[in-house]
Write a protein that binds this DNA or RNA. Structure first.
Lengths: 143, 143
DNA sequence: CTTACTGTAATTATATGCATTACAGTTGAT
DNA sequence: ATCAACTGTAATGCATATAATTACAGTAAG
């Protein structure tokens, strides 16, 4: 799976966690452990979906503008990673005589698409808020 | 996702389709569109699970020794690709002060593990035999 | 004893993913 | 009006992952 999904979830959770619901790409990148340019790319995606707004210029950054309890991981997966469970590599060969060889790619495509829908059904039950709660639980379990 | 899953499914379906339930790595590789050495590696995995037996030496090859209607894609996924939906890349940093940064890796790990169980639940309902039937349907739909 | 196979590991080639750099555009502060 | 601190985006470089290929020892049939 595409790791932009993880970055998107992490960024939204971080914004939800921060009292002012705001952070720069540098702050997010440091928290996520990646490069600010990569964060900005992912945030661009979240902005298009209306989950964050951008304040440009000095003193700017990203501002959460959605209710963390309303946004599900399914929506985030759809925008960042749809199709990513299917391997890039494709079995078979449509040019062959054999019924198996020439239809396998199509059938596996069907199967992966259905599998992805199962995944989405699960992600649809998880919100950003719930991820934040899980983080708090994980923190408590440590002590 | 790991493409060895696709190769394993394709190979088993092909063996199930062939009247003698037998084929060499060359034949399978040509049908799958990959290299015979790669097929032999995947088949080694299927042999360990008891789905095929090997006949070595001249005139040898791989022989299906299971009921295609009994073997599910879930079992195949478990042997070839378990853990492959989780991205290699990992968010956060356990060394940081921030509660979000230092627990995100663990929480995402949980989430991906649960997501994979959803996937397995779906694959558990699909057998090699059913994949073969889907191939026949796909073939029919073309005409 | 030769031919046709598998088993497995090592090597090479290619694709993908991530980090980094670069720079134009925007805004706030002085 | 100029500087400093940001975002947006594209291009480049680098590392890792994946697939193809090569190589060769081992095994069985004829």
């Amino acid at each position: 799976m595409n790791s932009e999904f993880t970055i998107a979830v992490h960024s939204l959770v971080l914004l939800a966690y921060r009292p002012d619901h705001m952070a720069t790409s540098d702050m997010i990148a440091h928290n996520v452990s990646t490069h600010p340019a990569r964060v900005r790319k992912v945030m661009g995606c979240l902005r298009k979906m209306g989950y964050v707004t951008t304040k440009e210029g000095s003193g700017g950054g990203f501002i959460l503008c959605c209710d963390p309890a309303e946004v599900t991981l399914a929506e985030i997966y759809k925008t960042t990673s749809i199709g990513s469970i299917k391997p890039g590599w494709c079995s078979g060969d449509t040019g062959q005589d054999c019924m198996v060889a020439c239809n396998m790619a199509d059938v596996m495509e069907q199967i992966f698409t259905e599998a992805e829908m199962q995944l989405l059904a699960y992600f649809d039950k998880l919100t950003i808020q719930q991820v934040l709660e899980r983080l708090r639980e994980a923190q408590q379990d440590k002590v």
